[in-house]
């Protein structure tokens, strides 16, 4: 049980990072983006490629950082992955979403996102193979934190949780301390009013995509670091990430953070009760429960 809780918090940090970007996009562009989870996949694979590249160019970088399985090369690759994924998100918007937005309704965008997800997922499969891959083949042993109840934690997991929390704190500071953050929140609340107050809407939308893509890349690499990398990352995470945004309330960054942890913990604790095969169903049950009890989520506002 306590092990499930610990694992859940870890998964939750990944889901939170993914959900922050999704909730912003869903709120500002007003469509459920089914391709958002594919950005995690793009990030995970981009880091895989750059990890190999950096390690090849400068072999000392292939050294591990302390007790982690993460290498210096992977740390640098993470930065590259953030840039690549942010750019991909922006590119997809320019190529597909922005054009559909200008001619269709918001639901056409939902549909387009299905198509985009399918293309990204399968192109990834074609490029990198359908099998699973790992950043590091070295086995890192878990540390026994407690024997009774048994609690095993890997150094990577501690790092991922700490780093994810750090990213969230940084985002919090941007949103509450900088005028850029105010502008983002202003656009989320009332795009027209933000425009008349001098905010360039097109630039903010681009920023949201880059931000969402960057956070998704971090989430994807962290997921790959603690699980494994496969072209199905997007397929497996799309529903949990949606569940996190709905639990938190669409448009709320803090709701997305909390929602991510709630969904991660609930899905893992549920494993203590349910047979493990059922874990993909848990996010849906959470969505149903939220829609039943509090349809606008924990922090969301009713919006027509």
């Amino acid at each position: 049980m306590i092990q499930n809780l610990a694992d859940g918090i870890l998964v939750g940090s990944v889901l939170s990072l993914g959900a922050i970007g999704l909730t912003l996009v869903m709120h500002m562009l007003r469509f459920a983006n089914f391709s958002h989870a594919e950005l995690l996949s793009i990030g995970a694979y981009a880091a895989l490629v750059f990890d190999a590249v950096f390690a090849a160019i400068l072999p000392p970088l292939a050294a591990k950082i302390g007790p982690l399985s993460m290498t210096w090369a992977l740390a640098l690759a993470l930065l590259a992955a953030i840039a690549i994924t942010g750019a991909s998100a922006l590119l997809i918007d320019r190529l597909v979403f922005r054009r559909v937005r200008s001619k269709g309704s918001e639901l056409s965008m939902v549909f387009a996102s299905f198509g985009v997800a399918m293309i990204v997922r399968n192109v990834t499969g074609l490029l990198f193979g359908l099998g699973t891959q790992l950043y590091s083949r070295d086995i890192v042993f878990a540390v026994v934190v407690s024997r009774d109840p048994l609690l095993l934690i890997k150094p990577d997991q501690v790092f991922v949780l700490a780093a994810a929390l750090l990213v969230m704190v940084a985002l919090h500071l941007v949103l509450t301390r900088t005028t850029l953050g105010f502008a983002l929140r202003a656009v989320a609340e009332n795009p027209t009013l933000a425009q008349v107050n001098g905010v360039n809407l097109g630039r903010m939308i681009a920023l949201v995509w880059v931000l969402g893509g960057g956070l998704a890349a971090i989430a994807g690499v962290f997921y790959g670091l603690t699980n494994q990398i496969s072209p199905m990352i997007g397929r497996d995470l799309v529903l949990p990430v949606f569940a996190a945004t709905i639990v938190g309330g669409i448009g709320s960054v803090y709701g997305a953070v909390l929602g991510g942890f709630i969904v991660g913990v609930a899905a893992n604790v549920a494993l203590a009760v349910l047979p493990s095969g059922y874990s993909p169903s848990v996010p849906f049950l959470i969505i149903l429960a939220v829609l039943l009890v509090r349809p606008n989520g924990l922090f969301g506002e009713a919006r027509a």
């Binding site: 869903m26 007003r30 469509f31 459920a32 089914f34 918001e106 639901l107 939902v110 799309v238 529903l239 949606f242 569940a243 709905i246 669409i250 993909p280 169903s281 996010p283 849906f284 049950l285 969505i287 149903l288 829609l291 349809p295 919006r303 027509a304």
Partner: peptide
């Protein structure tokens, strides 16, 4: 609810 909730919920029920 908001229209895209239906999209998400139906997608979820298919997975489930």
């Amino acid at each position: 609810l908001r229209q895209d909730y239906l999209a998400i919920a139906t997608f979820g029920i298919a997975v489930t």
